[in-house]
Design a protein around this nucleic acid. Structure first.
Lengths: 202, 202
DNA sequence: CCCTCCATGTTTACAGGAGAAACTTATCGG
DNA sequence: CCGATAAGTTTCTCCTGTAAACATGGAGGG
């Protein structure tokens, strides 16, 4: 602890450190009552220091949510461009990527869709969320173009797909897909149900 | 033991009054930072009075969520038994009932599915949620029996349907179904997408 | 090379919430 | 009529978010 005392008065990149601490705590404690003071404490900094980098508590929460969307976008993007499989297989892969992300970061995922991360308050957060949504749109467009998906208004496909994936992710996080009478692979099965409507000639 | 059914002494029925106040405030303020003291204030009692009827703040929240599930179950039940339409039409009606309920009670609906209302903490809440889910199951069983739905494992149908309806409800609450490039009836369109996989020979 | 600015920290202060404990009051069974 | 007890109040402690005043130390101008 003597070493920690040696740290310079100015932290270097406290903003980043606070974000990292908060993300780590979100990852650790499944449902953690977010507290600015606790974040400051674990970053070895006074409880007022965060206010030099974030206007208020929600400002930090929104930044965390934004980072979450960026990470989710990347995960989905990787899943989408991995392997030259069919569009349907890629759809499943992208959906799984989203749900896996939620299962690996339940606290962060909840935050991203909670009222605490109000997207109307932060254009950057809104943009990040839209970019993530955009991946799904591109995938749907592709499926429409190559004839894998039935010719339905893309808005309907997008709403259904987004609702399905997000709904499954939330259910999975809440553990409501494992305890009840669900089969071995409830997520895949549910996605198949949706897809046999999306795909032509299921 | 006093929590179940006791006669009022002083206030009348403070437990009920507190619940009503909280429900009213949930209905009024879209996103209200729930506060026990505020509930007590608006019920004209001291801030410690609620503790005579609820162990803690979350206990009241769980009771509110339980009531929400009961109301939702009733709304869905009404929708399910209204009119001798096709199973598909009744599926849509039940889904609409759920989404309409969410739109009419966004705060309550959010609470019902938030981490604050931990279903593992209260058997009554869990049962209420399961009863609501049960309506969907009965509808799916019926559709399987009469051949309206494709012969898929009911767990898959249930997961897909529940995820879809809940996902649409959450998106609708967040206003993400209106601002984007969605058609005139995004909910119906999305449900049709799902159903054309659920229904045989869509 | 020193001195002064100012971004980034810290300390102090205050309002408000959760909850516990002690105290008060009214209702009821005997 | 009288305790016992449920129901409500006061008071207290600890916590949080946030603002204001103060401290520090690195960067840039003389």
């Amino acid at each position: 602890m003597s070493e920690t005392k040696d740290r310079p008065y100015h932290h270097g990149d406290l903003r980043r450190a606070l974000i990292d601490t908060a993300l780590a705590m979100l990852a650790t404690d499944q449902n953690w009552a977010f507290t600015l003071r606790e974040v400051a404490r674990r970053t070895d900094v006074s409880h007022a220091a965060p206010y030099k980098h974030f206007r208020d508590r929600e400002s930090l929460l929104r930044e965390l949510a934004r980072i979450g969307f960026v990470q989710l976008e990347e995960a989905m993007s990787v899943a989408m461009s991995s392997g030259p499989s069919s569009t349907r297989a890629r759809f499943v892969a992208v959906a799984r990527a989203c749900i896996d992300f939620a299962l690996c970061n339940p606290g962060l995922y909840r935050l991203m869709f909670s009222a605490d991360a109000d997207k109307t308050m932060d254009p950057h957060l809104h943009d990040a969320a839209m970019a993530t949504f955009g991946i799904l749109l591109r995938l749907l467009e592709e499926g429409l173009r190559d004839g894998s998906f039935r010719p339905v208004a893309i808005s309907a496909l997008a709403a259904a797909s987004w609702a399905q994936v997000h709904g499954l992710a939330m259910l999975a996080i809440s553990g409501q897909l494992l305890e009840e009478k669900v089969g071995p692979e409830p997520v895949l099965a549910a996605l198949d149900v949706l897809l046999d409507g999306v795909c032509r000639g299921g």
